[in-house]
Design a protein around this nucleic acid. Structure first.
Lengths: 205, 205
DNA sequence: TAGATTGTTAATCGATTAACAATC
DNA sequence: TAGATTGTTAATCGATTAACAATC
């Protein structure tokens, strides 16, 4: 156990472990080892043990880890032992796909608001949501206490919207716009840009 | 200049530099410095210089980097000084969004085929593409010489499709399915899973 | 008990930063 | 020329791996 600051790189791997454990659990497995989990997610057994042991002693010598118990602990650590409301800004193709996405609910998230600044889209339905005007974004997000947002607007609009999200009290932004955004240190950003991801592989092809 | 093996972590940052330089160029800028580029993308000036200098001496003391020249060099290094044909497997919401995505063409990629195994989807149109049967995937991809694929199928189908892609000669897979896949070392995989990305941030909120 | 596997330490390996001579 | 900024070296910092005592 270690109360010091946990490196980002370790936090980054935990969701991958969590996802694999969820699948193991769904398939009826009860226990696993660092060896087995490591092979499944592509990291060394030593690293699995080191990462997990930052937060406590969750395994048993000789038998490994109880999948249910480790799942519970990882969910607590990552704070996804609850459902986070998420705001979606940008109702284009990607926004629609995310609004319809079925993979959030059992992973700790729920889209609850969709915004766009296009007058022709405002008032339209996306799945269960009515598209709201970005003009009201700060007020709506603030009063709903939403801390997480996904950004699917064009690159040219991204920084402006990000500034509003910060102003509204959002602390985590999943940015699909193909541009780096500047936010205060207290706000986390993750980037998803398919072209960038593809360009990380072409070098090796 | 250094002919040794370049670390993955450096290759991973180059597309981000490339993207920022493209924007600088679009806005009419002619030169930049490691300082300026670093602030824009959120890394130290020293790191920008170190990363870029792995591949040659692209800057000039006193004046910095010519944006056009550095763009050209980075595109060469990453092999995106050309257009790569990309196959898309899985014609759900995410597949549709990617098939319509406008952000590939000026970044080195072009979707040219869409596959699904759902009989009710096969033959339907997605943008300019007719959805083809996954049964023909190996043959079609192999004969077209396609080396890059995007995977937007359910987690349960992902490993099976990945195996077929490998068999077809694909060397780079952008995996949107929420599961780790196993492929030979010679095949690169990048993961995009919105829930995983969100879970990397909740710890800090 | 014997076998298996953890948690942890120490050693190794790799990445980042600071600093500065070179030079545009 | 004087000022600015690169490319690179050495120092620092951090992450990964190997190994093994502890113990289920």
């Amino acid at each position: 156990m270690n109360a010091d600051k946990i490196p980002d790189i370790i936090i980054g791997r935990l969701p991958v472990y969590l996802r694999a454990l969820q699948r193991m659990s769904d398939s009826g497995m009860k226990t696993t080892s660092s060896q087995e989990l490591g092979e499944l997610v592509g990291v060394s057994a030593a690293q699995i043990r080191k990462d997990v042991s930052q937060f406590g002693e969750f395994g048993k010598q000789g038998t490994g880890y109880s999948i249910t118990y480790l799942l519970e602990k990882l969910r607590e650590i990552l704070k996804v032992d609850r459902i986070w409301d998420v705001a979606l800004v940008g109702a284009g193709d990607m926004g629609h796909a995310l609004a319809h996405y079925q993979g959030f609910s059992n992973r700790g998230f729920k889209v609850v608001m969709v915004f766009d600044n296009d007058k022709s889209k405002i008032g339209q339905k996306v799945g269960d949501f009515t598209i709201e005007d970005t003009v009201n974004l700060v007020e709506k997000i603030k009063s709903a206490g939403i801390k997480i947002a996904m950004l699917t607007v064009p690159a040219s609009a991204a920084q402006g919207v990000a500034d509003k999200l910060v102003q509204a009290g959002v602390k985590a932004i999943l940015n699909y716009a193909p541009i780096s955004i500047n936010v205060p240190q207290s706000v986390k950003v993750q980037y998803i840009d398919p072209s960038t991801h593809l360009q990380r592989m072409t070098y090796y092809v």
